[in-house]
């Protein structure tokens, strides 16, 4: 798999406080990577480091396979755009003036793409209105417009829906999906609003106390979260034959344990297993939400 970003034992300390501890992360190309963690888990620290705002204390990271210490990292960063915490925009300028300023920093030959960019983020009609008079949602979209000025193919968004109203959240979601699907931009989104992330992300990384505790695809997460029945039987082999016949999705956990996904008729299954000579020793129904999954992952006792 090709990766936009990989980190290898990335560590960051502030005095005695260790914000990141040996963090290993892999953001696949083309993905919308949901970076999940509670406040203070280290999400923003990681983003600051990969954006070049801070230097890691230990470990390293690679952008498109180029190590942070290589000279080429400077040109590779041109393929990146980011909104870190708050949008980075001159409040005393209009949307267009802000974009012109960013175009100059990037050394773009002309300002021809500005109107399209404003159109894309829904700020085309702002005219001479100064950014300081924009709503929070407009500022967030302005920040994204700035980050898109260099036509990046990797976008980093730190808590992009924080403080937005429901309409703003929907607009932001649609914009991110549009950028990913139409422009093939890889997006790394940090958030602790799990419901919102679950509507976007194709991959997840769960961070807790500076360590990435789990990294998985949305499909794997869906599998882990979907309704299932945990079955303990006398023979898993016999049970598999029955489940295959019934075309049920399942996973063998051990010689006597299976997990069956989706909705099943317990009576039908019990009868079929009995006919195959397989005894059911125990049966347990399980359903997990993304929230439950996350809390189980990072240690429920601290969230009680």
């Amino acid at each position: 798999m090709e990766y936009c970003l990989t980190t290898s034992r990335l560590t960051k300390t502030y005095g005695r406080f260790q914000a990141l501890k040996d963090l290993n992360m892999h953001v696949p190309k083309g993905a919308i990577y949901g970076f999940v963690g509670k406040n203070g888990a280290g999400k923003t620290t990681l983003i600051r480091i990969i954006c070049g705002l801070q230097n890691p204390t230990g470990g390293s990271y690679q952008l498109y396979g180029v190590d942070q210490n290589q000279k080429e990292i400077v040109s590779i960063r041109r393929r990146m755009g980011a909104v870190v915490e708050t949008p980075s925009i001159y409040l005393n300028m209009t949307a267009e003036e802000n974009l012109k300023e960013q175009y100059r920093i990037l050394g773009m030959p002309d300002f021809s793409g500005i109107n399209d960019l404003l159109e894309l983020v829904g700020l085309a009609g702002t005219g001479k209105k100064k950014v300081k008079n924009f709503s929070l949602g407009m500022r967030q979209r302005m920040g994204i417009a700035i980050s898109l000025a260099g036509n990046p193919d990797f976008l980093v968004l730190d808590e992009p829906v924080n403080g937005l109203d429901p309409q703003g959240i929907v607009e932001m979601r649609e914009l991110i999906l549009k950028l990913n699907r139409e422009r093939q931009i890889t997006v790394l989104i940090s958030s602790h609003i799990l419901d919102e992330l679950s509507r976007l992300a194709t991959h997840y990384g769960f961070i807790d106390q500076g360590t990435l505790v789990k990294e998985l695809s949305a499909k794997e997460l869906e599998q882990a979260c979907q309704k299932s029945v945990c079955l303990t039987v006398s023979s898993a082999k016999a049970a598999c034959q029955v489940l295959d016949r019934k075309k049920l999705e399942y996973q063998v956990k051990s010689e006597s344990e299976l997990e069956i996904y989706g909705k099943i008729s317990v009576t039908d299954l019990t009868l079929a297993l009995h006919e195959a000579g397989c005894d059911i020793l125990s049966l347990r129904e399980r359903e997990e939400s993304l929230e439950n999954y996350y809390i189980n992952l990072v240690g429920g006792e601290s969230h009680a």
Partner: peptide, 18 residues
């Protein structure tokens, strides 16, 4: 100071300016 207060210094670093 505006570069810090408006956060625009970050825009320069993110796109690879030394």
């Amino acid at each position: 100071g505006t570069e810090y207060s408006d956060g625009t210094l970050r825009n320069k670093l993110i796109v690879g300016q030394r």
